[in-house]
Design a protein around this nucleic acid. Structure first.
Length: 564
RNA sequence: UGACCCAUGGUGUAAUUGGCAACACGUCUGAUUUUGGUUCAGAAGAGUCCAGGUUCGAGCCCUGGUGGGUCAACCA
């Protein structure tokens, strides 16, 4: 291993690990590191969550600690079991195993209720009878302090009685709330007597109709962390202003030196996409895409269906780093991560997307043969396979030009190229239909060049992929482009992000021919179609047609050169 | 007329905690190549938002600006 390689192996550190190092040095929490990933089951996980999962769980792994999966299910009106299941599947697929440490905030509804009772008894919480608008009005603004509720100084007895009535269902939704009594003049809006319990006569996906009062996020999160023994509660930047409140509740709760600590990092922004559950839900609900797992979606399930691998996503998460700087990651980095992974592992195969028929005029009619091809030049252990060759072939339309420009290495009339793993062929004639459209090429092959070798040492500039027409498997191939044409579609104040949707984000080719090797492929299997890109088998595949998704194209220096 | 946070090549991160800015992606050369892929060799590109200060020495510390983000849901 070279010096350079050794440097690269060193896992990058970040400010969170540095803070944990410090906590450990100071002997906090008996040297334990315990993290959690706390999704709300109200949507599917996306690549931004993947960053958070890798950070939270990866951190615990790094420090030989533990990590929990905890569903933040305190709002029954938005949460569903479908989402719980998809989240578990996605986290598992990414390669993390949380063992039996699977929790729900709803597991703590009882303890949370008891804790609220304690706050009331200590005069630190009160029932407010005012409607939402009035409470909101009294909150003030960031630059103006709030005013106190007329119900703020009820006696503990009265509050206890009212809260019990709330719990017993004596009131309608919104009629009363329980508030923490902190400081209406605090410069931090979240400290101005935040609402901690609201009335919702809505069945919960786990507790059913047991409760009609539900705790707010702020009243559940830190406490859940505390009860689970979380040491480092890593979340995104928008919760930074909640931290004093998080600490305030933990302070009321703690009875030892242990205390969980919230640390915030910048969420992931990816160019040419949107990354909020609300917006992704909108795309799904309004049928702008075909579901949460549409291969154009930045969801984990979409990326999986598109052909991304867990490794590629984890490497990506590692590469982008962790900071508090709000930035925008170039999708090119994500694409680089899959190419890097798939280049090492993907089975090579030849497939023609836009077929052009080629007849080898000096190859006997009715004859065919099998030629040996390498399965993966990056991994010899993947072995070889046989590819059928015959008189009638398909090549890529792009690989032939009647009037080739300079530096075009492919086929033209009178030119010789190599058909990969097969023979050298020379094009002699172009056949056109009545519209002048090229419909066939007539070529001759050199039998001495079998395997693609030139016995006389003569060179050809181009090597083309091809497929034997009678043997090929006709398939559908779906090509994807970015979902949005704007780098940051949600950043425009006066324009809805959907205005920037790319109308050509999905192109479906139904006249594609792939070598017979793919016949036995299973859903989600990865391939490299030589010279084209990485593709995987879409679950839409049925007995009749194999459907492929293009995960990402190969790097293409020819298309760049062409533009000049 | 607030609180909290952020600011390093095009992009994302790093800099042994004060010692003259490194890595990755991207871009551009060239070599190799039965994938115009991979690999390899190399190049361009920032003097660290600005202004002061402390110091022999500042991207790191201090002060003041500027720019950006977050917070006023009975959402999380």
């Amino acid at each position: 291993m070279t010096v350079k390689e050794q440097e690269e192996v060193v896992k990058p550190t970040n400010f969170i690990h540095q803070q944990i190092d410090k906590d450990l040095e100071e002997g906090k929490n008996e040297g334990r590191v315990h993290t959690r990933f706390p999704p709300e089951p109200n949507g599917y996980l996306h690549i931004g969550h993947a960053k958070s999962i890798c950070l939270n769980f990866g951190t615990a792994e790094k420090y030989n600690g533990l990590y929990n999966l905890r569903f933040d299910d305190t709002n029954p009106s938005k949460e569903e079991t479908e989402y719980v299941d998809s989240i578990k599947e996605d986290v598992r697929w990414l390669g993390f195993d949380w063992g039996d440490r699977e929790y729900f905030a709803s597991d703590y509804f009882g303890k949370l209720y008891e804790f609220a009772l304690k706050l009331i008894r200590e005069g630190k919480a009160y029932v407010d009878d005012q409607p939402a608008e009035v409470i909101s009005e009294q909150k003030g603004t960031p630059t103006r302090p709030g005013t106190e509720s007329p119900f703020r100084n009820r006696t503990a007895e009265e509050n206890l009685e009212l809260f019990l009535a709330m719990k017993n269902g004596d009131f309608k939704d919104g009629e009363k709330v329980l508030r923490a009594k902190i400081d209406m003049a605090s410069p931090n809006m979240h400290m101005r007597d935040p609402i901690i319990y609201r009335i919702m006569h809505t069945p919960h996906h786990r507790t059913g109709t047991e409760w009609c009062i539900y705790p707010m996020y702020d009243f559940a999160h830190g406490q859940s962390d505390y009860w689970e023994g979380i040491t480092h509660s890593i979340c995104t930047l928008e919760f930074e202003v909640h931290r004093p409140l998080y600490d305030w509740f933990v302070e009321q709760l703690k009875d030892t030196d242990y205390r969980p600590r919230q640390i915030e990092f910048a969420r992931l922004n990816l160019s040419y996409t949107v990354m909020s559950k609300r917006k992704l839900l909108e795309l799904v609900k309004d049928n702008h895409v075909n579901g949460w797992d549409d291969p154009r979606m930045p969801t984990i399930s979409g990326l999986r269906r598109r052909g991304y691998t867990p490794d590629s996503i984890r490497n990506f998460a590692e590469r982008i780093g962790v900071t508090k700087t709000d930035g925008m990651i170039d999708v090119a980095l994500l694409e680089h991560s899959v190419r890097e992974d798939l280049n090492k592992s993907a089975q090579r195969v030849m497939g023609v997307l836009n077929p052009l028929k080629v007849v080898i005029t000096n190859y006997p009619e009715g004859q065919s043969e099998e030629l040996e091809a390498v399965n993966n030049p990056e991994d010899e252990s993947m072995g070889k396979r046989m590819v059928p060759f015959s008189r009638e072939l398909y090549i890529e339309r792009d690989d032939f030009m009647e009037n080739p420009p300079r530096k075009f290495f492919r086929l033209g009339v009178g030119r010789e190229v190599r058909l990969r793993y097969a023979y050298f062929v020379t094009c002699n004639e172009v056949v056109k239909d009545e519209n002048g459209e090229i419909i066939e090429l007539r070529c001759t092959y050199d039998p001495a060049s079998k395997g693609g070798k030139s016995p006389d040492g003569r060179k050809v500039k181009g090597t083309l992929h091809w497929v034997s027409a009678p043997h090929a498997v006709k398939s559908e191939v779906r090509l994807y482009d970015r979902l949005f044409s704007d780098e940051n579609p949600q950043a425009h104040k006066d324009v809805d992000f959907k205005e920037f949707m790319n109308p050509d984000s999905l192109q479906s080719l139904t006249d594609c021919y792939i070598e017979p090797f793919v016949k036995t492929a299973n859903a989600l299997d990865h391939f490299q179609f030589e010279r084209l890109g990485y593709f995987n088998v879409d679950p839409d595949t049925n007995g009749d047609t194999i459907v492929f998704n293009r995960t990402v194209s190969l790097k293409d220096s020819w298309s760049k050169a062409k533009k000049k």
